[in-house]
Simulated scan of single mutants.
Amino acid sequence: MPDSYADLSHFYDLVMTSGYYDYDAYARNLLTRIGPRRDVLELGIGTGLVGDRLLALGPQDLRLTGIDHTDNMLAQARDRLGDRARLAREDVLDMSSPSAFDVAYSIGGVWYIVQNGEESWLSSHLMDEEDNAAGLANLAAAIRPGGSLLLSVQGPHRRYDRTLPGGLVYTQHVAVDPEGRHTKDYFIEDQGVVLAHQRLRFRLFPQETADRLLERCGFHFQESDGVLWQYDRC
């Protein structure tokens, strides 16, 4: 995948901590699902915001590894997490960590669930179905049998704007093609002047397609509580 947050990385924490996510809620929910297991992988650790809360609220012997494909984000994660986590620049299409983890999770990272009422989709930053199969197969190889994959739940993507601390404005625009491929443009503006612009592309797979894809790679749906969906590794 390309270095998809390079332009926005300077403002990423400002956007994410202004109400975009409730990191404490995600961390507590993750810890409930993780339970006594200790070897944990975060997919798309970004600047380390989720990992920081997970390590702060979790047991001292929790062993967190975070991977990301964006150098600028990883640099910020290293500043935030120090030696509390192992961080690596790695792409799910190239990862090779056989049976190293008990749990992997993605909070708006490579994969997550989009839910709108009774309908749900698997959102992926990988546009091609076979790339998703390859990435999920690599992930399955990295999770011990009986382990779990936890995916966050989000609402539908839409256009909106938000005022940030310091008077900056965050805006996102979304366009969708008939195949479920989304193009999302992010803008940071100061009094109408664009300070940063980032374009990301992702694809929504209908839940039936997603379940078939996940099962093909060794993951079976276990449960959902509206915050996380859990798939267990056979």
Rank of each mutant, 00 (worst) to 15 (best):
G166N: 11
S152M: 11
H157Q: 11
T163Q: 15
R162N: 12
G166Q: 12
A134H: 14
P165D: 15
G147N: 11
V174K: 13
A140L: 04
S148M: 09
D177H: 00
K184I: 02
F187L: 10
A137K: 10
R144D: 01
A175F: 01
V169S: 10
L149V: 09
S148R: 08
G146T: 07
G166R: 08
R181L: 14
T183P: 09
A134V: 12
V176Q: 12
A134C: 14
D177R: 00
R158M: 13
L150Y: 00
A142D: 02
Y186M: 01
P145D: 14
G155L: 14
L151H: 02
L150R: 00
A140P: 01
P178A: 09
L139S: 00
D161W: 13
S152D: 10
F187A: 06
Y170L: 02
P178S: 09
H157K: 06
A142S: 14
D161G: 11
D161T: 08
A142L: 09
G166W: 15
V153H: 10
L139P: 00
F187M: 12
V174P: 10
L168K: 05
L150W: 00
D161S: 13
G167Y: 08
R144E: 07
Y170C: 02
D185H: 07
T171E: 11
Y160I: 06
L150C: 08
I143L: 15
V169A: 09
L139E: 03
L139H: 04
G147W: 08
G135E: 07
E179H: 12
V153N: 04
Y186R: 00
G146F: 03
E189W: 01
E179G: 10
H182C: 09
A134W: 13
L136I: 00
G147M: 13
I143F: 05
R158C: 13
I143C: 08
A141I: 07
V176W: 03
R181P: 02
D177F: 00
A137R: 11
N138P: 05
R162L: 14
R181F: 12
T163D: 15
L168I: 03
T183N: 07
L150T: 02
Q172V: 10
A141M: 12
V176T: 14
G135V: 04
T183S: 13
S152W: 01
V153W: 02
P145C: 13
L149P: 01
V176D: 03
S152Y: 02
A140R: 07
Y160R: 07
G155C: 15
L150P: 01
H173T: 08
Y186W: 09
L168Q: 01
D177C: 00
G180C: 05
P178C: 03
L139N: 01
V153M: 05
G166K: 06
P165Y: 14
Y160E: 12
Y160H: 08
S148P: 02
G135T: 06
I143G: 04
Y170W: 15
P165C: 11
E189N: 12
P156K: 12
G146I: 10
P165K: 12
L136R: 01
V176M: 08
E189H: 06
G167T: 03
Q172A: 08
